[in-house]
């Protein structure tokens, strides 16, 4: 048994700990909310991401309540926890960056002098910017379904540009893909892991 085998075992166990679908459900609902704002409440659309960002701290206790009696409790090693903290900090920074860029583009379109024509691709920008952190998550976790989410969002964004539609559609479609996957994963998780008494 080499060191790399144990690292692989740890990585596999860590990835499998996210197979309960709760993160997918949360991300799916968040994207659907953001997409719906773009489609039906455009005035607040650039700020729609604030609500999911505010709800992120509730994700950990909610996930714990939903899954710990079945998947059990585990505390990962210090390097893994440090790595996890670093990824979350990076994602939060990307989220804020996304908000700033989208807000800036919206302001530029409304107030700018039009020196740069952004109208042609503006519809795709919010979705592509949302896809960036998802790609980052896919890279660091190696989860194939997260790659699929990023692909769906970018592909729908490009189709949105081609069809000259509202940027809410790629977010809504990507969110629905996540939500459906989350529901399936969570149902499978509950089916395959009977509730234990922890003793």
């Amino acid at each position: 048994m080499r060191g790399t085998d144990l690292e692989q075992l740890e990585t596999t166990a860590y990835r499998e700990s996210y197979s309960d679908g709760v993160v997918d459900l949360f991300a799916g609902l968040s994207l659907i909310w953001i997409g719906a704002c773009w489609l039906w409440f455009e005035a607040i659309a650039p700020f729609a991401a604030i609500l999911p960002a505010v709800l992120i701290p509730t994700l950990v206790p909610i996930r714990r309540r939903l899954t710990e009696s079945r998947a059990g409790y585990v505390r990962w090693t210090e390097p893994r926890r440090t790595w996890e903290r670093r990824q979350l900090t990076g994602l939060a920074a990307l989220g804020v960056g996304t908000l700033v860029v989208v807000g800036g583009l919206i302001a530029y379109r409304r107030l700018g002098d039009g020196a740069i024509d952004v109208s042609g691709f503006a519809a795709a920008i919010p979705a592509v910017l949302v896809a960036i952190p998802i790609v980052v998550v896919a890279v660091v976790t190696g989860l194939r379904r997260v790659w699929a989410y990023a692909f769906v969002i970018v592909a729908t964004a490009l189709a949105t540009v081609a069809a000259n539609q509202n940027p809410g559609w790629p977010l809504l479609v990507g969110g629905l893909a996540m939500l459906v996957t989350g529901v399936v994963l969570f149902a499978e998780f509950r089916r395959s892991t009977p509730a234990g008494d922890g003793a």
């Binding site: 048994m1 144990l6 075992l9 740890e10 166990a13 499998e16 009696s69 079945r70 998947a71 059990g72 409790y73 585990v74 505390r75 990962w76 090693t77 210090e78 892991t193 234990g196 922890g198 003793a199």
Partner: peptide, 18 residues
Amino acid sequence: MASLYIVDEADFVNVAGR
């Protein structure tokens, strides 16, 4: 032993599941 070596600690349910 291997399942405990890769974590700091884990409960009965988690170890049995993994």
